[in-house]
Design a protein around this nucleic acid. Structure first.
Length: 203
DNA sequence: AATGCTCCCAACCGCAACTAT
DNA sequence: CATAGTTGCGGTTGGGAGCAT
């Protein structure tokens, strides 16, 4: 026996949200506080939307503390080092970046950071061909990580896993399986991690 | 100006985990 | 304990915006 669908897709609106719908959802959450039941919310709020869709819209876009774009070098490094350590666990990575959502971090990685990492990976390989050991601070920061061999990373989307490895800081989180979400360092702790020179070399 | 291409991001989908009964 | 309902997550896609030809 299959699981019942969360809503009747045929009778529910899909696609982009209108400003009116945003306001309905925002005002409902504002007046009712934490949403207990997202499935029931659309009806109560007067929205012809799937509960799942409402939840996603709120979490990824309407929440008051959301930041969009404008990623800092420091945030880049947090994302890459955590990706290296735990793979594509976007919700965990996002939880270390105040104001960022898993969807946002995921999009940012897929559209920008991955390419940046690939470019640096290419550059790094050329560097290794000419030098026995990395000499720049950037290169030392990008030392391949033991964690990159973990199942977490090897199961992460193809080549991207190994690219993530390049950004591993010297003190990494434990590989998946030993990774403790509760003890993972928040963003502030990363401030002591890479050198300014390493951070600058990203641009 | 028209067309095609690429990039980016919001949103959807399906599954797993969790919770209630 | 078993089942159903709900939530959370990660992968993927659709389509608009901007750029190149």
């Amino acid at each position: 026996m299959g699981r019942a669908p969360c809503c009747d897709k045929a009778s529910v609106k899909r696609g982009p949200w209108s400003p009116e719908e945003d306001e309905l959802l925002r005002s409902y959450v504002r007046s009712h506080g934490a949403v207990g039941n997202w499935i029931a919310l659309p009806q109560k709020a007067g929205l012809n939307r799937c509960g799942k869709s409402c939840r996603l819209r709120w979490l990824n876009y309407l929440r008051p503390d959301i930041k969009h774009g404008g990623y800092t070098e420091q945030e880049d490094m947090v994302i890459c080092s955590l990706y290296n350590s735990i793979g594509s666990r976007w919700s965990i990575i996002a939880s270390k970046l105040p104001g960022r959502t898993d969807n946002d971090v995921k999009n940012y990685w897929n559209t920008k950071l991955k390419k940046k990492a690939m470019a640096m990976h290419h550059h790094q390989q050329q560097h290794y061909h000419h030098h026995a050991a990395p000499q720049s601070q950037c290169a030392s920061y990008m030392q391949p990580s033991p964690a990159s061999a973990s199942s977490a990373v090897t199961t992460a989307s193809g080549d991207a896993g190994s690219f993530g490895a390049m950004y591993s800081p010297s003190h990494q989180a434990a590989p998946l399986g030993h990774y403790n979400v509760n003890t993972a360092a928040p963003l502030a702790e990363f401030s002591a991690m890479p050198t300014p020179a390493a951070a600058n070399s990203w641009a």
